[in-house]
Amino acid sequence: MIQLKNVHKNFEGKPVLRGLNLEIYDGEIITIIGASGAGKSVLFKNIVGLMKPDSGEIIVDGVDITKLDEDELHKVQTKFGMLFQGAALFDSLNVYENVAFGLRRLTNMNEVQIKRKVAELLEVVNLSGTQNLPVSALSGGMKKRVGLARALATSPKYLLYDEPTTGLDPILADSINKLIVKVNKQLKVTSIVVTHDMKSGFEISHRIAFLSDGVIKETGTPDEIKNSKLEELRKFISLYFQ
């Protein structure tokens, strides 16, 4: 379980998170929605420990990660897998090396086992046989799927998706949504999704959280969010339901 308590984060005096509170339960898919520049990516990076909040607590499985030293934090960070907006594949490595990266560092697998595992993961994301392709030869959708395979490789407890369907055509976006649900069901991975894509958010989530003005203003199931009385939220999602 992840708990964020009264989290504040400023950039050069400009507040982005202003006392944010949120609880993320094990095994759920929670989608964080909000306008551009609302601080969704900042929230993400704080959860993983890539950014440190100015104040507040971020408790991951009972441990407040804001109080950990670097080495302790690195250990907690290995509980997370992250699918970055632009996939963030290492462009000096090929597909195989990218997916094998975490396996080499976080598991005791030998090269034969790693080879097998990489093949399995690429099959899960429908990219079998692409092991030797350089990153530069991949399309946007393929990059995201390789990024997902890489994030899944180390069997993380928490998987964070930063705009997983942005820039993809509807068919590819749908296949990524299905993958998120499949991964959540099959591997029991807690999934935290940040997206602008309302269709995706309402289709795949167990819960949705609405981020605005640096705080979570509403959380609930997709139905609860749909019927929310919060005017700002109603306006935000109205276009999707028109």
Partner: peptide, 10 residues
């Protein structure tokens, strides 16, 4: 964000 990715990959 490749640097950020490193942290979650051990």
């Amino acid at each position: 964000e490749q640097i950020d990715a490193l942290y979650t990959l051990g």
